[in-house]
Every structure is written in structure tokens, then in C-alpha cells.
Amino acid sequence: MRLLKSTQVSDLHSNISHRFTRKATRAIVLNGENILLLYTKRYHDYTLPGGGIDEGEDNISGLIRELREETGAQNVNNIQEFGYYEEYRNWHKNDYDVIHMLSYCYSCEIDQELLAPEFEPHELQNGMQPLWMNIHAAIIHNEMVIKNSEKKGLSIERETFLLKRIVAELL
């Protein structure tokens, strides 16, 4: 899979060898210029559905599971590689100084009808909800959050970059 972008925070801890790698998938589901996204009330942003790949799970199985859990999507098909986004960020939990985040992105199709999502407790606390959104409006919204919000999440730069690449390459 092709590398879309590699980033690291400007104040990255010097002990990058004391890191752990987290692999995740991100789903790109388009319907014209509308895209299936997650809105997160806590950060007031839009992100691609997806999340961590479980131990022993391959990327495609993780993609399908996360898409079903977060959006209620059914019959995920026509899965195509889009690219991956690599990040190095400081980690503020025990045992590691740095997280190496790999987000594998795939375009796919789903049935129009969405079932109820099965959010994890932290996702419910953050006020996550799936919705169809015009991709251009989502980009503009996220750019305003990046520019003006003190409570923005760590993933918004990645997500906004990915949305722009989707517009450039898939629309």
C-alpha cells in the first residue's frame, strides 16, 4: 500500500526507540460528493470511520468490523486500497514515550441502510455519531476547527488531509 504522508509532532520525545505501533483502518464510503463520517461532539470534528486492528485480525477484517461497529454499515464490499498515513506522536501513558500510528485507508461500498452503531464507552462519552456529509463542507468545517478551537483532537490534521486527498483522487 502506498504511503500518503508521514508526520511527527514538532516536540517528539527523543527516545523514539521506546515506542509502540498502533495499526488502524479507515473507511472511505462515498455517495456522490457525500461521504460517511463520524461527528465527534467533544472535538467538534468530522473523521473517517475506523479504528484499531485487533490482535490476530487482518486489515480488511478490522475495516469491516470497525465500520459495522461505528456506523452500522452492512455488506461491505468492493474494498480497494487507498493508502496509509503514518504518524509519530508523544505518548503519555506508562511503558512508552512515542506512539507510531499507521492508518490504512480503504475505499468501499455498503448497503444504503445503516443499522444502529455499537459504540464503545469512550466513543459514547465523546458524543460520536455517524452521518452522511458533503465532503467539501466537512473539510471547511475541520479547517475552521483547526484554526479556531483549543479543544481540537489529535487526529483532525490527519483526517482533514485524508478528506482532501479523497476529493483530489476519488471525486
Rank of each mutant, 00 (worst) to 15 (best):
N31M: 15
N90I: 10
I146L: 13
K164A: 10
R68Y: 10
F82I: 06
Q8S: 02
Q129C: 12
F20N: 04
S155N: 10
Y39N: 06
N90F: 02
E169P: 02
C105S: 15
S155K: 00
K93Y: 06
S10R: 07
V76M: 04
R65L: 07
L163W: 02
A116K: 10
P121D: 15
Q129S: 14
L102C: 01
E70Y: 04
I28A: 01
Y88Q: 09
E150H: 08
V76W: 03
S14Y: 08
F119H: 15
M133L: 05
R89N: 15
T21Y: 06
E70T: 14
E150R: 05
L4A: 04
E87S: 08
K5P: 06
D11P: 13
W132P: 08
R22I: 05
E113G: 09
T160Q: 04
R26M: 10
E69G: 05
V76Q: 01
N15L: 10
I139Y: 15
Y88G: 08
S107R: 05
E150P: 07
M144S: 07
L36I: 03
S107D: 01
I60L: 13
S103F: 00
R158M: 12
N15K: 07
N59H: 03
L30R: 05
A24G: 07
E118L: 10
S6L: 14
H136I: 11
M1D: 00
T7A: 09
L30I: 01
N94T: 12
K152M: 11
T160D: 01
D45S: 02
L154D: 08
I64G: 00
A168I: 14
L162C: 09
N75I: 04
L114I: 04
D58R: 00
T7V: 15
V167W: 01
W91S: 01
N90V: 09
D11W: 04
E113C: 12
A24I: 04
S155P: 10
I35T: 00
V9N: 02
M101C: 13
Y85Q: 00
E120L: 14
N78G: 09
C108I: 03
L115N: 11
Q74A: 14
F82L: 04
N142M: 02
D97N: 03
P121E: 06
Q129W: 08
G52P: 10
I99V: 14
P130F: 09
L37I: 10
N59V: 14
N126H: 13
A137Q: 12
F161H: 12
G56A: 06
K23R: 01
T71S: 00
E66A: 01
N78W: 05
H92V: 06
K5Q: 09
S155W: 13
G72A: 02
G52D: 13
E159Q: 08
L170Y: 13
E159L: 03
H18F: 12
Y46M: 11
V29D: 00
V98I: 08
L114F: 00
I156H: 03
R165M: 07
A168M: 12
L12D: 08
Q74N: 15
L12G: 00
